[in-house]
């Protein structure tokens, strides 16, 4: 079959809603778009563990300690699954697992803005667990229909587990909202700090050429703005029902347009965080990943050059 015919038959399958599998032929453009998206997702899961890891040692009850540890474990596990998917996609392009990780601190792969931000208090940890996770779930749920089978299947697992963890986040927030004056105040302060980041999370309003291509291939199906609107639909009423004030006085629902009107966040600042890694914690966390990866290469080498493997140990 000529490449043209292969491409035509490939697009027919996409349009028919069929899943493309890891063993199928795919156009190089499709492969590269998938790598871009899934690599970023994998890295976001891995880097997303850092703000929470900072609160594991200080969680104020055994139940919370267990829950937050479970959340970090979950994120790392998802990161491992996603890395494997992108590893397979990248192999024909000659990229290795080591490179997929070192890309993080070489600034060659982006990760979500929220994970560049500081988790200053326990209330911040709660907001991350509830609202940041909430935003991630909306994102991930919309990707469940992705045309790439292996990604869709990992996403199914991720979505199921994320909603469980989000309930823990919600419980943390509820305890603070119904707690002492100091607890309630810490929660409001946390929301004030995180609101802009939550709006940033879904990305700018303009649909980029890459996003258009992803939609053409049905890798993703919704725009950034559509997802942000979904987030506001779901969470504005909930936040307000807790007696919290959203730090955007212009925020209101436009009945005629059927959408939320909000104060546009500073997209230049967003770009500096995500593409230049200039967030408050960007450098520190990338350094942690670099240390883990480079300073301990000797461990990975020792594990590779041995005659003992997990399967032989069983």
């Amino acid at each position: 079959m000529t490449e043209e015919k292969q491409y035509a038959s490939f697009m027919e399958r996409i349009r028919a809603g069929e899943k493309i599998e890891a063993t199928d032929w795919m156009p190089i453009e499709y492969r590269k778009l998938l790598i871009k998206l899934i690599h970023m997702h994998a890295v976001s899961e891995i880097m997303g563990a850092y703000p929470e890891k900072e609160w594991v040692p200080r969680a104020p009850s055994l139940r919370r300690k267990l829950a937050i540890m479970a959340k970090v474990q979950d994120e790392m596990g998802h990161g491992q699954l996603l890395l494997r998917v992108v590893e397979d996609l990248s192999a024909p392009l000659g990229r290795t697992r080591e490179e997929l990780v070192s890309d993080i601190y070489h600034g060659k792969v982006k990760f979500h803005n929220v994970f560049h931000m500081e988790a200053r208090t326990w209330a911040d940890a709660g907001v991350i667990g509830w609202l940041v996770d909430g935003a991630a779930i909306i994102n991930q749920a919309s990707l469940l229909e992705t045309s790439y089978g292996p990604y869709a299947r990992v996403l199914k697992r991720i979505c199921a587990e994320e909603s469980f963890h989000m309930q823990h986040g919600e419980n943390i927030i509820l305890a603070l909202a119904m707690g002492t004056d100091a607890q309630r105040q810490s929660l409001q302060t946390a929301l004030d700090y995180w609101w802009e980041s939550l709006l940033f999370f879904f990305g700018p309003q303009e649909v980029t050429p890459a996003a258009k291509q992803m939609m053409h291939y049905q890798i993703r199906l919704k725009t950034n703005e559509e997802l942000r609107q979904k987030f506001l639909d779901k969470y504005v009423p909930r936040i307000q029902s807790l007696g919290l004030t959203i730090p955007d006085l212009s925020l209101r629902y436009d009945d005629s347009q059927k959408k939320w009107r909000y104060q546009a966040p500073d997209w230049h600042k967003f770009s500096q965080i995500v593409t230049q890694n200039k967030g408050p914690k960007s450098e520190e966390r990338m350094l942690l990943r670099k240390k883990a990866h480079e300073d301990q290469q000797w461990v990975r080498e020792a594990m590779r050059n041995h005659n003992i493997s997990i399967s032989s140990a069983l």
Binding site: E21, Q73, E75
Partner: peptide, 17 residues
């Protein structure tokens, strides 16, 4: 794996974790 009760595998047949 991601939770206490699960491990992570890879299928060489369909190339999926």
């Amino acid at each position: 794996g991601p939770t206490a009760c699960r491990a992570i595998y890879y299928c060489r047949g369909c190339k999926q974790p």
